[in-house]
């Protein structure tokens, strides 16, 4: 299932958090060879994990991490603006643009996991008035994004071939969302339930109870 968890609430999901940071180490350090820091616990964490970002995480049935991504508002500090500003001709700052980074899939994750994460991104856009995501991605992700039908517009790139790193832009598209849901094997209704589980429901029944 999809979980939406602020960093401050990761303590409620210890196994999920532990396996997420380890899977990030495996993906970014071991497999992609990025210059990232892995701590003594084997966690890949950076300064942006300390800014209470919102994570969207695919949780496997055994409670472990299957894939995840990390969101921060661009009116605050972001990796794109602080480390990749030269690729995008100046900072991107707006209340309706969020940064999405550390898109990570556990080793051997099926393509349905990547699609499910994109579905979660769509929920965020629709429910929180976010119009675009801006993010950094590796050349090897291009194929995965294309496969799940969610290719970004590229704002700028550095490097060549496999080592190319790009800043990309995602936007919401209703038709694409339906295709992504299909690929994720998650009915929209279910997706909405997961979202409501994390952020509370607006349903009448709930209100009747609380009013």
């Amino acid at each position: 299932m999809l979980r939406y968890v602020y960093a401050s609430d990761l303590g409620d999901h210890p196994k999920l958090a532990r396996t997420m940071f380890r899977d990030r180490a495996d993906q970014f350090k071991t497999r992609l060879g990025w210059d990232v820091h892995v701590d003594k616990d084997g966690y890949e964490r950076d300064e942006y994990d300390d800014l209470n970002p919102l994570y969207v995480i695919w949780e496997e049935p055994d409670g472990s991490h299957g894939g995840s991504m990390r969101f921060l508002p661009t009116i605050g500090r972001t990796m794109v603006n602080e480390h990749f500003g030269d690729l995008i001709s100046g900072p991107i700052t707006s209340p309706v643009i969020w940064e999405c980074t550390r898109f990570c899939l556990t080793r051997g994750a099926g393509s349905h996991v990547a699609a499910a994460l994109m579905l979660g991104g769509g929920e965020i856009m629709q429910n929180f008035g976010v119009e675009h995501f801006v993010g950094v991605f590796d050349a090897r992700m291009v194929r995965i994004y294309r496969m799940i039908g969610s290719s970004p517009d590229v704002l700028g790139s550095a490097g060549e071939g496999r080592d190319q790193i790009s800043v990309g832009l995602w936007h919401f598209d209703e038709a694409a969302a339906a295709a992504v849901a299909e690929r994720a094997g998650v009915p929209m209704e279910r997706s909405r339930q997961w979202f409501d589980l994390a952020f509370g429901t607006t349903s009448r029944r709930e209100l009747a109870r609380t009013a």
Binding site: N52, P73, I124, G200
Partner: peptide, 23 residues
């Protein structure tokens, strides 16, 4: 607090007694 997504109040947790009294 410490979050950044906009919130419809209905989504919040009003279930505790102090919260209901406050509301």
């Amino acid at each position: 607090f410490q979050r950044f997504h906009p919130v419809d109040w209905k989504r919040l947790d009003w279930s505790s007694k102090p919260a209901r009294t406050f509301q």
